[in-house]
């Protein structure tokens, strides 16, 4: 099982803060976005359009990063920390 986390504006779009997904074999971020698209098309489109940063186990990931059972995948909108 992998854990999916949605932050800030993406939480509003996904309409959830956290989700879990059973995977039989390791998958890529691209494959994960296909799975998400089936249940949340808007979220899938955002992931494919690269309008979001993705981390796996708190490290930045790319489209071909492999996700394994037990991993935590987070969807991160552009950051806005701090002041000017």
């Amino acid at each position: 099982m992998i854990t999916l986390k949605y932050f800030a504006s993406l939480r509003d779009i996904a309409e959830k803060e956290e989700d879990s997904l059973d995977i039989e074999n390791p998958i890529t971020i691209d494959q994960l976005s296909d799975i998400i698209s089936k249940t949340t098309p808007k979220m899938g489109a955002i992931i494919r359009g690269k309008k979001v940063l993705i981390s796996v186990n708190e490290e930045m990931a790319s489209a071909d990063t492999i996700i394994h059972d037990g991993d935590e995948v987070a969807f991160l909108p552009p950051f806005s920390g701090g002041a000017k």
Partner: peptide, 14 residues
């Protein structure tokens, strides 16, 4: 450091 913080640190402002 402040530029890098804003670029790489997952913090969001509403």
């Amino acid at each position: 450091a402040i530029a890098e913080l804003k670029r790489t640190t997952p913090i969001w402002k509403r």
